[in-house]
């Protein structure tokens, strides 16, 4: 049910086949360069697969062909780096830090996208269920279609704060009204 994608397999960047890419570099500046490369790769990977959460044992961190693996401890360091960039966040701020939100679009950006869509389709003052919003026929072509419900809540919370939406209803029967 996802939108059509131009290619069906994710194209890894060349440095994904560079063996040291999977070893935390001891030199700090080199490690920084390495983190930037990982950050871009993780965002591209999650965007391609429409992943919102990335666990530290994601297949992305293992290159089977090279028989190399970015161990969870180092992957955690990379995600901490992304956190400092505003591109990742630990799920539930958990102490275990084993799954992270990857913001290939930040909640603010999602809020903007949803807001624009409401505007474009003239749906102000209409009420939509959250289910309709992300799973309904009307949004199939939208980027936020099939979006993670928690991320949706975060994006809507931002719209609420801006006075552009109101969320009501019970747990799984929630609706939203846009202004």
């Amino acid at each position: 049910m996802t939108t059509l994608s131009p290619s069906t397999t994710f194209t890894y960047p060349r440095h994904y086949n560079f063996p040291p890419f999977f070893t935390r570099q001891p030199q700090l500046t080199t490690f920084h360069a390495q983190c930037r490369k990982w950050s871009l790769l993780i965002q591209a990977y999650c965007r391609f697969h429409r992943l919102f959460r990335l666990p530290l044992d994601s297949p992305l961190f293992t290159n089977e062909r090279l028989n190399r693996r970015l161990v969870p401890e180092d992957a955690r360091a990379v995600l901490d780096f992304m956190r400092s960039e505003g591109r990742a966040e630990w799920v539930r701020g958990g102490e275990e830090r084993s799954v992270a939100w990857v913001w290939w679009r930040t909640p603010e950006e999602w809020a903007g996208i949803i807001g624009d869509w409401v505007e474009e389709t003239a749906q102000k003052n209409t009420v939509l269920t959250l289910y309709e919003l992300t799973e309904g026929e009307a949004t199939v072509s939208q980027e936020f279609h099939g979006m993670d419900p928690e991320v949706l809540q975060r994006a809507l919370a931002i719209l609420v704060k801006r006075g552009k939406a109101q969320v009501f209803g019970q747990e799984d029967q929630q609706g939203v009204k846009f202004f």
């Binding site: 063996p19 040291p20 890419f21 999977f22 070893t23 500046t29 360069a33 390495q34 028989n67």
Partner: peptide
Amino acid sequence: ESMLWVDKQ
């Protein structure tokens, strides 16, 4: 000097 990257695996 960042001129070499190490692979420890």
